[in-house]
Nucleic acid binder design. Structure first.
Lengths: 230, 230
DNA sequence: TGGGCATGAATGGTCTGAGGACTTGCGGGA
DNA sequence: TCCCGCAAGTCCTCAGACCATTCATGCCCA
Protein backbone atom coordinates (compact mmCIF):
# COMPACT_ATOMS: atom_id res chain seq x y z
CA UNK A 1 0.00 0.00 0.00
CA UNK A 2 1.09 3.57 -0.58
CA UNK A 3 2.82 5.21 2.34
CA UNK A 4 0.26 7.92 2.96
CA UNK A 5 -2.59 5.45 2.75
CA UNK A 6 -0.81 3.19 5.20
CA UNK A 7 -0.49 6.06 7.64
CA UNK A 8 -4.10 7.04 7.11
CA UNK A 9 -5.35 3.54 7.77
CA UNK A 10 -3.15 3.26 10.83
CA UNK A 11 -4.40 6.49 12.34
CA UNK A 12 -8.02 5.63 11.63
CA UNK A 13 -7.64 2.24 13.21
CA UNK A 14 -6.15 3.72 16.37
CA UNK A 15 -9.40 5.60 16.77
CA UNK A 16 -11.77 2.93 15.45
CA UNK A 17 -10.30 0.27 17.72
CA UNK A 18 -10.97 2.45 20.71
CA UNK A 19 -7.29 2.67 21.59
CA UNK A 20 -7.62 6.45 21.41
CA UNK A 21 -10.93 8.00 22.39
CA UNK A 22 -12.21 11.53 21.87
CA UNK A 23 -9.68 14.10 23.06
CA UNK A 24 -6.85 11.58 23.40
CA UNK A 25 -3.34 12.60 22.41
CA UNK A 26 -1.35 10.84 19.70
CA UNK A 27 2.34 10.03 20.18
CA UNK A 28 4.78 12.58 18.73
CA UNK A 29 5.29 12.51 14.99
CA UNK A 30 8.68 10.74 15.02
CA UNK A 31 7.24 7.95 17.15
CA UNK A 32 4.18 7.56 14.93
CA UNK A 33 6.48 7.36 11.91
CA UNK A 34 8.26 4.44 13.53
CA UNK A 35 5.04 2.66 14.43
CA UNK A 36 3.53 3.06 10.98
CA UNK A 37 6.74 2.67 9.02
CA UNK A 38 6.39 5.85 6.97
CA UNK A 39 8.29 9.10 6.71
CA UNK A 40 7.21 12.29 8.40
CA UNK A 41 6.01 13.78 5.11
CA UNK A 42 3.63 10.91 4.50
CA UNK A 43 2.46 10.86 8.08
CA UNK A 44 1.76 14.56 8.06
CA UNK A 45 -0.24 14.29 4.84
CA UNK A 46 -2.34 11.58 6.43
CA UNK A 47 -2.85 13.72 9.52
CA UNK A 48 -3.96 16.63 7.35
CA UNK A 49 -6.49 14.41 5.64
CA UNK A 50 -8.10 13.38 8.88
CA UNK A 51 -7.88 16.92 10.22
CA UNK A 52 -9.79 18.16 7.17
CA UNK A 53 -12.53 15.69 8.03
CA UNK A 54 -12.66 16.94 11.61
CA UNK A 55 -11.51 13.64 13.05
CA UNK A 56 -8.21 14.80 14.54
CA UNK A 57 -6.64 18.13 15.45
CA UNK A 58 -3.04 19.27 15.39
CA UNK A 59 -2.03 21.95 17.86
CA UNK A 60 1.20 23.69 17.10
CA UNK A 61 3.69 23.20 19.90
CA UNK A 62 1.37 20.94 21.84
CA UNK A 63 0.54 17.74 20.01
CA UNK A 64 -1.93 15.91 17.82
CA UNK A 65 -5.25 14.90 19.33
CA UNK A 66 -8.38 12.96 18.50
CA UNK A 67 -11.20 15.46 18.09
CA UNK A 68 -14.37 15.37 20.18
CA UNK A 69 -15.90 13.24 17.39
CA UNK A 70 -19.06 15.25 17.83
CA UNK A 71 -21.30 14.71 14.79
CA UNK A 72 -22.37 18.34 14.65
CA UNK A 73 -18.75 19.50 14.53
CA UNK A 74 -17.84 16.94 11.91
CA UNK A 75 -20.78 17.95 9.78
CA UNK A 76 -19.74 21.58 10.08
CA UNK A 77 -16.50 20.65 8.34
CA UNK A 78 -18.59 19.87 5.34
CA UNK A 79 -19.11 23.54 4.69
CA UNK A 80 -15.56 23.68 3.31
CA UNK A 81 -16.55 21.39 0.48
CA UNK A 82 -20.24 22.22 0.21
CA UNK A 83 -19.43 25.85 -0.48
CA UNK A 84 -17.67 24.80 -3.66
CA UNK A 85 -20.58 22.81 -5.05
CA UNK A 86 -22.08 24.39 -8.17
CA UNK A 87 -25.69 25.52 -8.36
CA UNK A 88 -26.89 22.26 -9.86
CA UNK A 89 -25.85 20.43 -6.75
CA UNK A 90 -27.11 23.07 -4.37
CA UNK A 91 -30.62 22.43 -5.56
CA UNK A 92 -30.26 18.79 -4.58
CA UNK A 93 -28.97 19.83 -1.20
CA UNK A 94 -31.91 22.15 -0.68
CA UNK A 95 -34.24 19.17 -0.84
CA UNK A 96 -32.38 17.82 2.17
CA UNK A 97 -32.71 21.12 3.97
CA UNK A 98 -36.38 21.42 3.15
CA UNK A 99 -37.21 18.01 4.55
CA UNK A 100 -35.06 18.38 7.65
CA UNK A 101 -36.21 21.88 8.47
CA UNK A 102 -39.85 20.97 8.02
CA UNK A 103 -39.27 18.25 10.59
CA UNK A 104 -37.36 20.52 12.94
CA UNK A 105 -39.92 23.31 12.67
CA UNK A 106 -42.73 20.92 13.45
CA UNK A 107 -40.85 19.67 16.48
CA UNK A 108 -40.21 23.20 17.64
CA UNK A 109 -43.92 23.94 17.38
CA UNK A 110 -44.77 20.84 19.36
CA UNK A 111 -42.22 21.44 22.10
CA UNK A 112 -42.83 25.17 22.45
CA UNK A 113 -39.69 26.09 24.35
CA UNK A 114 -40.15 28.97 26.71
CA UNK A 115 -39.42 32.27 25.05
CA UNK A 116 -38.86 30.81 21.60
CA UNK A 117 -41.74 32.66 19.99
CA UNK A 118 -40.61 35.93 21.53
CA UNK A 119 -37.04 35.49 20.35
CA UNK A 120 -38.24 34.65 16.85
CA UNK A 121 -40.57 37.63 16.74
CA UNK A 122 -37.73 39.89 17.75
CA UNK A 123 -35.55 38.53 14.97
CA UNK A 124 -38.30 38.99 12.42
CA UNK A 125 -38.85 42.58 13.48
CA UNK A 126 -35.25 43.34 12.72
CA UNK A 127 -35.32 41.29 9.54
CA UNK A 128 -38.32 43.12 8.15
CA UNK A 129 -36.75 46.47 8.93
CA UNK A 130 -33.60 45.97 6.87
CA UNK A 131 -32.84 45.86 3.17
CA UNK A 132 -29.13 45.11 3.52
CA UNK A 133 -28.33 41.82 1.82
CA UNK A 134 -25.71 40.73 4.34
CA UNK A 135 -27.95 41.57 7.26
CA UNK A 136 -30.88 39.72 5.71
CA UNK A 137 -28.61 36.72 5.31
CA UNK A 138 -27.51 36.92 8.91
CA UNK A 139 -30.97 37.34 10.43
CA UNK A 140 -32.48 34.64 8.23
CA UNK A 141 -29.81 32.24 9.49
CA UNK A 142 -30.54 33.27 13.07
CA UNK A 143 -34.26 32.68 12.62
CA UNK A 144 -34.00 29.23 11.11
CA UNK A 145 -31.10 28.32 13.34
CA UNK A 146 -33.05 29.13 16.48
CA UNK A 147 -35.95 27.00 15.30
CA UNK A 148 -33.72 24.05 14.49
CA UNK A 149 -31.95 24.33 17.81
CA UNK A 150 -35.30 24.25 19.57
CA UNK A 151 -36.80 21.46 17.52
CA UNK A 152 -34.10 19.07 16.44
CA UNK A 153 -30.82 17.65 17.67
CA UNK A 154 -27.49 19.40 17.10
CA UNK A 155 -26.69 17.19 14.13
CA UNK A 156 -29.78 18.25 12.24
CA UNK A 157 -29.12 21.84 13.20
CA UNK A 158 -25.55 21.69 11.92
CA UNK A 159 -26.52 20.00 8.69
CA UNK A 160 -29.21 22.53 7.83
CA UNK A 161 -26.84 25.35 8.75
CA UNK A 162 -24.23 24.09 6.30
CA UNK A 163 -26.72 23.93 3.47
CA UNK A 164 -28.22 27.28 4.37
CA UNK A 165 -24.77 28.83 4.33
CA UNK A 166 -24.12 27.51 0.85
CA UNK A 167 -27.39 28.77 -0.57
CA UNK A 168 -26.69 32.17 0.84
CA UNK A 169 -23.78 32.67 -1.50
CA UNK A 170 -26.23 33.19 -4.28
CA UNK A 171 -27.44 36.65 -3.61
CA UNK A 172 -31.14 36.43 -4.13
CA UNK A 173 -31.60 39.60 -2.18
CA UNK A 174 -29.43 41.91 -4.19
CA UNK A 175 -31.36 45.06 -5.01
CA UNK A 176 -32.95 44.60 -8.40
CA UNK A 177 -36.21 44.42 -10.21
CA UNK A 178 -37.81 41.76 -8.07
CA UNK A 179 -36.22 42.72 -4.80
CA UNK A 180 -39.33 44.11 -3.13
CA UNK A 181 -41.57 41.25 -4.21
CA UNK A 182 -39.08 38.61 -3.13
CA UNK A 183 -38.42 40.28 0.20
CA UNK A 184 -42.12 40.57 0.96
CA UNK A 185 -42.78 36.96 0.05
CA UNK A 186 -39.88 35.87 2.23
CA UNK A 187 -41.08 37.98 5.15
CA UNK A 188 -44.59 36.54 4.86
CA UNK A 189 -43.13 33.05 4.85
CA UNK A 190 -41.28 33.72 8.08
CA UNK A 191 -44.40 35.12 9.72
CA UNK A 192 -46.37 32.04 8.70
CA UNK A 193 -43.77 29.81 10.34
CA UNK A 194 -43.81 31.89 13.49
CA UNK A 195 -47.61 31.83 13.60
CA UNK A 196 -47.67 28.05 13.39
CA UNK A 197 -45.13 27.80 16.19
CA UNK A 198 -47.07 30.27 18.32
CA UNK A 199 -50.25 28.26 17.81
CA UNK A 200 -48.43 25.03 18.64
CA UNK A 201 -49.48 23.55 15.35
CA UNK A 202 -46.76 21.14 14.17
CA UNK A 203 -48.48 20.23 10.91
CA UNK A 204 -48.90 23.85 9.94
CA UNK A 205 -45.32 24.54 10.96
CA UNK A 206 -43.98 21.76 8.76
CA UNK A 207 -46.05 22.95 5.83
CA UNK A 208 -45.00 26.57 6.30
CA UNK A 209 -41.32 25.70 6.59
CA UNK A 210 -41.47 23.40 3.61
CA UNK A 211 -43.21 26.01 1.48
CA UNK A 212 -40.77 28.70 2.56
CA UNK A 213 -37.75 26.68 1.50
CA UNK A 214 -39.43 25.45 -1.65
CA UNK A 215 -39.85 29.09 -2.56
CA UNK A 216 -36.12 29.61 -2.09
CA UNK A 217 -35.50 26.68 -4.40
CA UNK A 218 -37.60 28.34 -7.07
CA UNK A 219 -35.69 31.59 -6.77
CA UNK A 220 -32.37 29.80 -6.99
CA UNK A 221 -33.55 27.79 -9.94
CA UNK A 222 -34.42 31.04 -11.68
CA UNK A 223 -30.80 32.14 -11.28
CA UNK A 224 -29.64 29.13 -13.24
CA UNK A 225 -28.64 30.19 -16.74
CA UNK A 226 -29.94 27.04 -18.34
CA UNK A 227 -32.79 25.64 -16.27
CA UNK A 228 -33.15 22.04 -17.37
CA UNK A 229 -36.23 20.08 -16.34
CA UNK A 230 -36.05 17.29 -13.77
CA UNK B 1 -1.06 33.28 7.59
CA UNK B 2 0.42 29.85 7.97
CA UNK B 3 1.88 28.35 4.83
CA UNK B 4 -0.48 25.40 4.55
CA UNK B 5 -3.50 27.59 5.21
CA UNK B 6 -2.32 30.01 2.55
CA UNK B 7 -2.06 27.17 0.05
CA UNK B 8 -5.45 25.83 1.10
CA UNK B 9 -7.10 29.21 0.66
CA UNK B 10 -5.42 29.67 -2.69
CA UNK B 11 -6.54 26.33 -4.03
CA UNK B 12 -10.08 26.85 -2.78
CA UNK B 13 -10.27 30.25 -4.36
CA UNK B 14 -9.14 28.91 -7.72
CA UNK B 15 -12.23 26.71 -7.65
CA UNK B 16 -14.61 29.15 -5.97
CA UNK B 17 -13.76 31.93 -8.40
CA UNK B 18 -14.65 29.69 -11.28
CA UNK B 19 -11.13 29.81 -12.72
CA UNK B 20 -11.08 26.03 -12.51
CA UNK B 21 -14.33 24.17 -13.00
CA UNK B 22 -15.17 20.52 -12.34
CA UNK B 23 -12.60 18.21 -13.93
CA UNK B 24 -10.13 21.01 -14.64
CA UNK B 25 -6.43 20.36 -14.18
CA UNK B 26 -4.24 22.30 -11.77
CA UNK B 27 -0.76 23.47 -12.77
CA UNK B 28 2.09 21.14 -11.73
CA UNK B 29 3.13 21.27 -8.10
CA UNK B 30 6.31 23.34 -8.60
CA UNK B 31 4.35 25.97 -10.48
CA UNK B 32 1.62 26.08 -7.81
CA UNK B 33 4.31 26.50 -5.16
CA UNK B 34 5.55 29.57 -6.99
CA UNK B 35 2.08 31.04 -7.41
CA UNK B 36 1.13 30.52 -3.78
CA UNK B 37 4.54 31.22 -2.30
CA UNK B 38 4.80 28.06 -0.23
CA UNK B 39 7.03 25.03 -0.22
CA UNK B 40 6.07 21.78 -1.87
CA UNK B 41 5.44 20.08 1.49
CA UNK B 42 2.94 22.71 2.54
CA UNK B 43 1.25 22.67 -0.84
CA UNK B 44 0.92 18.91 -0.76
CA UNK B 45 -0.62 18.98 2.71
CA UNK B 46 -3.18 21.47 1.47
CA UNK B 47 -3.90 19.28 -1.53
CA UNK B 48 -4.40 16.30 0.75
CA UNK B 49 -6.87 18.27 2.84
CA UNK B 50 -9.04 19.11 -0.14
CA UNK B 51 -8.66 15.60 -1.52
CA UNK B 52 -9.97 14.20 1.76
CA UNK B 53 -13.04 16.39 1.34
CA UNK B 54 -13.56 15.11 -2.19
CA UNK B 55 -12.96 18.50 -3.75
CA UNK B 56 -9.82 17.66 -5.72
CA UNK B 57 -8.09 14.49 -6.91
CA UNK B 58 -4.41 13.74 -7.40
CA UNK B 59 -3.48 11.18 -10.04
CA UNK B 60 0.04 9.86 -9.77
CA UNK B 61 1.98 10.61 -12.91
CA UNK B 62 -0.84 12.57 -14.45
CA UNK B 63 -1.72 15.65 -12.47
CA UNK B 64 -4.03 17.20 -9.91
CA UNK B 65 -7.62 17.85 -10.90
CA UNK B 66 -10.77 19.48 -9.60
CA UNK B 67 -13.26 16.72 -8.81
CA UNK B 68 -16.69 16.49 -10.40
CA UNK B 69 -17.98 18.48 -7.38
CA UNK B 70 -20.98 16.19 -7.36
CA UNK B 71 -22.78 16.55 -4.03
CA UNK B 72 -23.47 12.83 -3.77
CA UNK B 73 -19.79 11.99 -4.20
CA UNK B 74 -18.74 14.65 -1.72
CA UNK B 75 -21.20 13.39 0.83
CA UNK B 76 -19.89 9.87 0.34
CA UNK B 77 -16.51 11.10 1.57
CA UNK B 78 -18.13 11.72 4.89
CA UNK B 79 -18.32 8.04 5.58
CA UNK B 80 -14.61 8.20 6.43
CA UNK B 81 -15.37 10.43 9.38
CA UNK B 82 -18.89 9.28 10.17
CA UNK B 83 -17.67 5.74 10.72
CA UNK B 84 -15.56 6.97 13.62
CA UNK B 85 -18.41 8.69 15.43
CA UNK B 86 -19.28 7.02 18.74
CA UNK B 87 -22.70 5.56 19.45
CA UNK B 88 -23.94 8.72 21.15
CA UNK B 89 -23.55 10.61 17.91
CA UNK B 90 -24.91 7.84 15.73
CA UNK B 91 -28.25 8.18 17.46
CA UNK B 92 -28.36 11.82 16.43
CA UNK B 93 -27.51 10.88 12.89
CA UNK B 94 -30.27 8.30 12.80
CA UNK B 95 -32.80 11.05 13.32
CA UNK B 96 -31.54 12.55 10.08
CA UNK B 97 -31.83 9.23 8.34
CA UNK B 98 -35.31 8.60 9.71
CA UNK B 99 -36.63 11.90 8.46
CA UNK B 100 -34.95 11.71 5.07
CA UNK B 101 -35.89 8.11 4.40
CA UNK B 102 -39.48 8.70 5.40
CA UNK B 103 -39.54 11.43 2.79
CA UNK B 104 -37.80 9.33 0.16
CA UNK B 105 -40.02 6.33 0.80
CA UNK B 106 -43.14 8.45 0.45
CA UNK B 107 -41.85 9.85 -2.82
CA UNK B 108 -41.08 6.37 -4.08
CA UNK B 109 -44.61 5.30 -3.29
CA UNK B 110 -46.03 8.30 -5.09
CA UNK B 111 -43.90 7.92 -8.19
CA UNK B 112 -44.19 4.18 -8.47
CA UNK B 113 -41.30 3.50 -10.81
CA UNK B 114 -41.83 0.55 -13.08
CA UNK B 115 -40.56 -2.64 -11.57
CA UNK B 116 -39.61 -1.10 -8.24
CA UNK B 117 -42.05 -3.20 -6.22
CA UNK B 118 -40.88 -6.35 -7.94
CA UNK B 119 -37.22 -5.59 -7.29
CA UNK B 120 -37.96 -4.83 -3.66
CA UNK B 121 -39.97 -8.01 -3.23
CA UNK B 122 -37.12 -10.03 -4.67
CA UNK B 123 -34.68 -8.43 -2.23
CA UNK B 124 -36.96 -9.13 0.71
CA UNK B 125 -37.34 -12.75 -0.29
CA UNK B 126 -33.60 -13.18 -0.07
CA UNK B 127 -33.39 -11.11 3.10
CA UNK B 128 -35.98 -13.21 4.91
CA UNK B 129 -34.24 -16.40 3.87
CA UNK B 130 -30.88 -15.61 5.45
CA UNK B 131 -29.59 -15.39 8.98
CA UNK B 132 -26.06 -14.32 8.11
CA UNK B 133 -25.31 -10.95 9.69
CA UNK B 134 -23.21 -9.66 6.81
CA UNK B 135 -25.78 -10.71 4.24
CA UNK B 136 -28.60 -9.12 6.22
CA UNK B 137 -26.59 -5.94 6.33
CA UNK B 138 -26.00 -6.07 2.59
CA UNK B 139 -29.60 -6.80 1.60
CA UNK B 140 -31.01 -4.24 4.01
CA UNK B 141 -28.79 -1.62 2.38
CA UNK B 142 -29.94 -2.74 -1.05
CA UNK B 143 -33.59 -2.49 -0.07
CA UNK B 144 -33.44 0.97 1.42
CA UNK B 145 -30.99 2.15 -1.21
CA UNK B 146 -33.30 1.13 -4.03
CA UNK B 147 -36.18 2.99 -2.42
CA UNK B 148 -34.13 6.16 -1.93
CA UNK B 149 -32.84 6.01 -5.48
CA UNK B 150 -36.41 5.77 -6.72
CA UNK B 151 -37.85 8.42 -4.44
CA UNK B 152 -35.24 11.06 -3.79
CA UNK B 153 -32.33 12.76 -5.48
CA UNK B 154 -28.80 11.32 -5.43
CA UNK B 155 -27.76 13.62 -2.60
CA UNK B 156 -30.43 12.30 -0.27
CA UNK B 157 -29.60 8.77 -1.34
CA UNK B 158 -25.91 9.26 -0.61
CA UNK B 159 -26.54 10.87 2.76
CA UNK B 160 -28.83 8.12 3.98
CA UNK B 161 -26.37 5.51 2.71
CA UNK B 162 -23.55 7.03 4.74
CA UNK B 163 -25.61 6.98 7.92
CA UNK B 164 -26.91 3.51 7.23
CA UNK B 165 -23.36 2.29 6.75
CA UNK B 166 -22.33 3.68 10.11
CA UNK B 167 -25.23 2.15 11.99
CA UNK B 168 -24.45 -1.18 10.45
CA UNK B 169 -21.20 -1.40 12.33
CA UNK B 170 -23.14 -2.13 15.43
CA UNK B 171 -24.11 -5.70 14.94
CA UNK B 172 -27.70 -5.80 15.99
CA UNK B 173 -28.16 -9.00 14.11
CA UNK B 174 -25.52 -11.07 15.78
CA UNK B 175 -27.01 -14.39 16.86
CA UNK B 176 -28.11 -14.04 20.46
CA UNK B 177 -31.07 -14.16 22.74
CA UNK B 178 -33.19 -11.66 20.87
CA UNK B 179 -32.02 -12.51 17.41
CA UNK B 180 -35.21 -14.18 16.22
CA UNK B 181 -37.50 -11.53 17.63
CA UNK B 182 -35.46 -8.69 16.19
CA UNK B 183 -35.16 -10.31 12.80
CA UNK B 184 -38.89 -10.96 12.60
CA UNK B 185 -39.72 -7.42 13.60
CA UNK B 186 -37.31 -6.08 11.03
CA UNK B 187 -38.72 -8.31 8.32
CA UNK B 188 -42.25 -7.20 9.13
CA UNK B 189 -41.16 -3.59 8.93
CA UNK B 190 -39.74 -4.11 5.48
CA UNK B 191 -42.92 -5.81 4.30
CA UNK B 192 -45.00 -2.91 5.62
CA UNK B 193 -42.89 -0.48 3.62
CA UNK B 194 -43.21 -2.58 0.51
CA UNK B 195 -46.97 -2.86 0.96
CA UNK B 196 -47.34 0.90 1.19
CA UNK B 197 -45.27 1.36 -1.96
CA UNK B 198 -47.27 -1.30 -3.78
CA UNK B 199 -50.50 0.43 -2.79
CA UNK B 200 -49.14 3.81 -3.87
CA UNK B 201 -49.82 5.21 -0.44
CA UNK B 202 -47.19 7.87 0.33
CA UNK B 203 -48.48 8.64 3.82
CA UNK B 204 -48.42 5.00 4.81
CA UNK B 205 -44.99 4.63 3.27
CA UNK B 206 -43.60 7.53 5.27
CA UNK B 207 -45.06 6.18 8.45
CA UNK B 208 -43.79 2.67 7.82
CA UNK B 209 -40.28 3.86 6.99
CA UNK B 210 -40.20 6.17 9.99
CA UNK B 211 -41.37 3.42 12.31
CA UNK B 212 -38.87 0.96 10.89
CA UNK B 213 -35.93 3.25 11.48
CA UNK B 214 -37.22 4.36 14.86
CA UNK B 215 -37.17 0.70 15.80
CA UNK B 216 -33.53 0.52 14.77
CA UNK B 217 -32.84 3.51 16.98
CA UNK B 218 -34.36 1.68 19.92
CA UNK B 219 -32.23 -1.38 19.31
CA UNK B 220 -29.09 0.71 19.06
CA UNK B 221 -29.99 2.62 22.17
CA UNK B 222 -30.31 -0.68 23.98
CA UNK B 223 -26.70 -1.43 23.06
CA UNK B 224 -25.55 1.66 24.84
CA UNK B 225 -23.90 0.68 28.13
CA UNK B 226 -25.20 3.73 29.93
CA UNK B 227 -28.45 4.87 28.35
CA UNK B 228 -28.90 8.44 29.46
CA UNK B 229 -32.20 10.18 28.84
CA UNK B 230 -32.55 12.70 26.03
C1' DT C 1 -0.36 1.48 -43.83
C1' DG C 2 -1.58 0.09 -39.40
C1' DG C 3 -0.74 -1.57 -34.89
C1' DG C 4 2.09 -2.69 -31.12
C1' DC C 5 5.94 -1.42 -28.39
C1' DA C 6 9.98 0.95 -26.48
C1' DT C 7 11.31 5.30 -24.73
C1' DG C 8 11.61 9.54 -22.39
C1' DA C 9 9.51 13.66 -20.59
C1' DA C 10 6.09 15.19 -17.28
C1' DT C 11 4.15 14.70 -12.88
C1' DG C 12 2.86 13.21 -8.41
C1' DG C 13 4.75 10.19 -4.28
C1' DT C 14 8.23 9.41 -0.71
C1' DC C 15 12.19 10.05 2.06
C1' DT C 16 15.77 12.68 4.65
C1' DG C 17 17.68 16.47 7.21
C1' DA C 18 17.62 20.91 9.02
C1' DG C 19 15.91 24.94 11.32
C1' DG C 20 11.93 27.81 12.97
C1' DA C 21 7.67 28.74 15.81
C1' DC C 22 4.59 27.80 19.35
C1' DT C 23 3.04 25.70 23.81
C1' DT C 24 3.73 24.23 28.27
C1' DG C 25 5.52 23.34 32.69
C1' DC C 26 9.12 24.25 35.81
C1' DG C 27 11.90 27.00 38.82
C1' DG C 28 13.89 31.28 40.45
C1' DG C 29 13.30 35.89 42.07
C1' DA C 30 10.67 39.87 43.72
C1' DT D 1 2.28 34.34 46.58
C1' DC D 2 2.79 35.96 42.05
C1' DC D 3 5.24 36.94 37.96
C1' DC D 4 8.79 36.23 34.72
C1' DG D 5 12.14 33.81 32.08
C1' DC D 6 13.76 29.66 30.45
C1' DA D 7 14.09 25.20 28.43
C1' DA D 8 12.14 21.03 26.79
C1' DG D 9 8.70 19.11 23.83
C1' DT D 10 6.12 19.30 19.71
C1' DC D 11 4.33 20.70 15.43
C1' DC D 12 5.38 23.74 11.12
C1' DT D 13 8.03 24.92 7.11
C1' DC D 14 11.52 24.60 3.90
C1' DA D 15 14.89 22.45 0.69
C1' DG D 16 16.73 18.84 -2.11
C1' DA D 17 16.99 14.36 -3.89
C1' DC D 18 15.20 10.26 -5.78
C1' DC D 19 11.33 6.91 -6.86
C1' DA D 20 6.90 5.48 -9.30
C1' DT D 21 3.48 6.20 -12.51
C1' DT D 22 1.37 8.06 -16.54
C1' DC D 23 1.16 9.42 -21.14
C1' DA D 24 2.44 10.91 -25.65
C1' DT D 25 5.85 10.47 -29.05
C1' DG D 26 7.87 8.02 -32.57
C1' DC D 27 10.02 3.99 -34.03
C1' DC D 28 9.86 -0.73 -35.63
C1' DC D 29 7.74 -4.53 -37.63
C1' DA D 30 4.13 -7.04 -39.86
Amino acid sequence: MAATDTALAGLRQMIASGALGPGAKFPPEPELCDQLGVSRSSLREAVRSLAALGVIESRHGSGTYVSALDPAEIISRFSLSVELIPLEGVLELLEVRRVLEAHATASAAARQDAGLADRLAEILDRLEATTDAAEIQQLDAEFHGAICAAGANPTVTALTAVIRGRGGHYRIFEPGVDFDAIKQTSDRGHRAILAAITHRDPAAAATAASAHIAQTELWLRALRPDPQPN
